[in-house]
């Protein structure tokens, strides 16, 4: 039996990798993938707690998150494609029009 702590530690690591990815990478697609990673790390936590506490609510929540994430992925990718068509780049350092 793998203890709960392992799941949580894995989840925390995945989340941290996601955060670092978002903060450091310049490619918009990578940043986007990092965000998905963070989402899924949280899903993992939910499922782990749900399993260990014997409460189905967590799993139910995960279904919602996955549904939303699917929609969000579609929108996010659409935005990135639109960006690329306009600016011929997905480097977020170069996409800084919205400022003072």
């Amino acid at each position: 039996m793998v203890s709960l702590n392992f799941y949580l530690s894995l989840s925390a690591m995945l989340f941290t990798i996601g955060v670092v990815g978002v903060l450091t990478r310049r490619n918009a697609i990578i940043v986007f993938m990092s965000i998905e990673l963070m989402l899924n790390s949280v899903n993992l936590t939910l499922v782990a707690f749900s399993s260990f506490l014997g409460d189905a609510t967590g799993q139910m929540l995960v279904f919602f998150v996955i549904t939303i994430a699917a929609a969000e992925a579609a929108i996010g990718l659409a935005i990135i494609i639109a960006l690329f068509r306009n600016k011929q780049t997905v480097n977020i350092d170069e996409i800084n029009l919205l400022k003072w």
């Binding site: 903060l23 977020i92 800084n96 919205l98 400022k99």
Partner: peptide, 11 residues
């Protein structure tokens, strides 16, 4: 002036 336009800065 806080609004610098760098997305990762906001993050």
């Amino acid at each position: 002036l806080v609004q610098v336009g760098v997305v990762q800065g906001y993050a």
